[in-house]
Write a protein that binds this DNA or RNA. Structure first.
Length: 599
RNA sequence: GGCCCCGUGGUGUAGCCUGGUCAAACACGCCACCCUGUCAAGGUGGAGAACGUCGGUUCAAAUCCGAUCGGGGUCGCCA
């Protein structure tokens, strides 16, 4: 069947005169009475089929009843079209297949939405009939480019002497991090496996095992709420290397990603070296740890202006160790006060900052709620720090360093999008390095690991671990692209003394250390090589590469926001017998129980 | 768990703010017929939704209010 098959998108004028057989779906049909045109579609493209009642009567009788999405086998002779019949908009537009026989291989019900065009359809319908949505040209192209990209990643890794290793899917539940998906064990009733959030621990054990250079195109599963760029199961390019420093990892990623990007013919290109920025610098200049550097609007430290201010709110903040920072918005005088008071204020409040104030630099001078508080001297400082021009506006937030950064960082991202301040075809990729080792939970006050507890501490900061843990930098790094976190990694701790100090800083008792991570600590007693690695989110990279706004459009069978797969309707209830075998009993109405359980 | 947006024939939308003229309009699709050169074919005719669901306000509700369900976005969450 396939040996004599020609792809619908393949024929060109040089094939004219050839007899051929094509198979495919009816993309469109144009019935002129005595002659019927059918656009036949397969994954390679679309070919116009001509069925003439005089010349192929039997085929014509067949084709009369054909409808959209029917599956046909068509044999005929490829001919050049008359000059006036050429369609320059189609790859096969210079030729057409004159049919001698037309066989209906399958009929099709009327599709629930248009398959032959890239029109909007409600997400639930797309997901319910995913197999039909997959017929659309756009998603087929996305998935094909995805395959090319992943293939290129794999090739690049092999060329760099990495070994692809499969790690288990049924693993021990990890105590920290995201919520686990649990899998009950039949043989050990009451016990559960977890599905991996990432192969983190196994890849480190591969290093202890002497494999030296590991990689995997790894599925990762996290039971957390979904977002436009987040699915509960996703794919990572997972890497771990021994006897290396950051530089080696950076080089592998830069080489691998930029070459694969090119191979997949993704949007634009990636540089052969990614710029670097420390976490400190990212926070100071952009207010976020994943800056979108396609546009400016950098944060300006305005503390020098308000050092001796009569404006009580700012004075209080500064006295308590807070900061005053602002963003200069070029041409911002066109922003209505209502936006400042409502839209921007909401953004700032969501970041838990107290509020913002603003100043317009109009022809007649600075105008705004805070204008009256500045002395002549302060205006001079203000002008030199902001370098604002007539027509600009400045928004100012005063709060703790963290909240100020969060508020202005969020506002900056909003402004960048709302005021179209960047070229959407640009790829702004960079390394963000030297993340803090620890962070304090604002609500509980507890110290936690920002990356994970096996992240190596920056050599200069080991001494600060006990007295000033929040100032300790780590050897963790992220790749950030267009304001989106693409992946992260770190050099790992292999020194037991340092590991112990980290656990102490995190207030994890020796008993808990043993219980939670005992197997890793034990492995590290047997000569662990210095090592480190990285994990890059493949779905997100593809989103950026294809300029898709939603991760669902780069995944063949994605889930909806409730983490359901609407085609097969998973998750679903299972038989009591199945549960009994696993030693599991469910609450009578899980949904109800959950909603009434205080959290 | 919070917040925001959406829910009208198979699909996409209009109508909803300013309730009655709406057993609801338009495009595509669907059905029938006509048509031998189109390519988003064309023409003629036709079927198809009581406006997600429930409740309320009102003489009167697609239109107002409440709840609920479904879809999406987002904050929390994602070491």
């Amino acid at each position: 069947m396939t040996t004599e098959r020609t792809g619908c998108g393949v024929p060109r004028k040089e094939h004219a005169g050839n007899s051929m057989t094509v198979y495919g779906w009816v993309d469109r049909r144009r019935d002129h009475g005595g002659v019927i045109f059918i656009d036949l579609r397969d994954r390679s493209g679309i070919l116009q089929i001509v069925i003439n009642s005089d010349k192929a009567h039997e085929a014509y009788e067949q084709a009369k009843d054909v409808r959209l999405e029917w599956v046909l086998k068509v044999t005929g002779e490829l001919r050049l079209r008359d000059a006036e019949a050429v369609n320059p908009n189609k790859a096969t537009g210079e030729v057409e297949l004159h049919v001698s026989s037309c066989e209906v291989l399958a009929r099709a019900a009327t599709p629930p939405f248009p398959v032959n065009e890239d029109s909007e359809v409600e997400e639930s319908i797309r997901l319910r009939y995913r197999y039909l949505y997959l017929r659309r040209e756009r998603i087929q192209r996305n998935l094909r480019q995805r395959a090319t990209f992943v293939h290129a990643l794999r090739t690049a890794m092999m060329e760099q002497e990495f070994t692809e290793i499969e790690t288990p899917l049924l693993i021990r539940a990890t105590p920290e991090g995201a919520r686990d998906y649990l899998v009950p064990s039949r043989i050990s009733p009451g016990s559960f496996y977890a599905l991996p959030q990432s192969p983190q621990l196994y890849k480190q054990l591969c290093m202890v095992g002497g494999l030296d250079r590991y990689f995997q195109i790894a599925r990762c599963l996290r039971d957390e709420d979904l977002r436009a760029d987040r699915q509960p199961e996703f794919t990572q390019l997972d890497i771990e290397m021994s006897f290396i420093t950051e530089e080696d990892i950076f080089q592998v990623l830069e080489r691998t990603l930029s070459s694969s990007w090119k191979a997949a013919e993704f949007n634009g290109e990636l540089p052969s070296k990614f710029p670097r920025m420390t976490w400190r610098e990212a926070m100071d200049r952009y207010g976020v740890d994943k800056p979108d550097v396609r546009f400016g609007l950098e944060l300006v430290d305005l503390a020098p202006v308000f050092r001796n201010t009569s404006f009580k709110v700012f004075a209080d903040v500064l006295a308590k160790g807070g900061v005053v920072k602002g963003i200069v918005i070029p041409g911002g005088c066109d922003i209505p006060r209502s936006d400042m008071e409502h839209t921007y204020m909401d953004i700032v409040h969501r970041a838990r900052a107290h509020g913002l104030t603003y100043l317009y630099y109009r022809e007649e001078g600075w105008v705004g709620p805070a204008a009256k508080f500045l002395s002549e001297e302060e205006w001079t400082t203000f002008a030199s720090l902001t370098k604002a021009k007539t027509g600009d506006a400045v928004v100012i937030v005063a709060d703790t360093p963290g909240r100020t950064a969060a508020a202005l960082g969020a506002l900056r991202n909003h402004l960048g999008a709302a005021r179209k301040l960047f070229d959407p075809s640009e790829n702004a990729i960079l390394w963000v390095t030297e993340f803090p080792m620890f962070e304090r939970d604002e609500d509980t006050g507890a110290i936690g690991a920002l990356h994970h507890p096996f992240t190596m501490v920056h050599a200069d900061d080991i001494d600060k671990m006990t007295e000033d843990p929040l100032m300790v930098r780590s050897r963790a790094y992220d790749i950030v692209m267009n304001g989106r976190e693409i992946g992260s990694g770190s050099i790992r701790i292999t020194n037991p003394d340092i590991q112990r100090k980290v656990f102490e800083a995190l207030a994890i008792s020796p008993e808990d250390q043993q219980r939670k991570f005992g197997f890793l600590l034990e492995a590290f007693e047997y000569g662990p090589p210095p090592h480190g690695g990285f994990a890059a989110g493949i779905d997100r990279l593809i989103m950026e590469g294809l300029r898709e706004e939603n991760i669902r459009d780069v995944i063949a069978f994605p889930k909806n926001q409730q983490a359901q797969e609407l085609m097969t309707m998973a998750p679903a209830l299972v038989d009591d017998a199945q549960l009994r075998e696993l030693g599991i009993a469910t609450l009578p109405n899980p949904r109800h129980e959950l909603s009434t359980t205080p959290s």
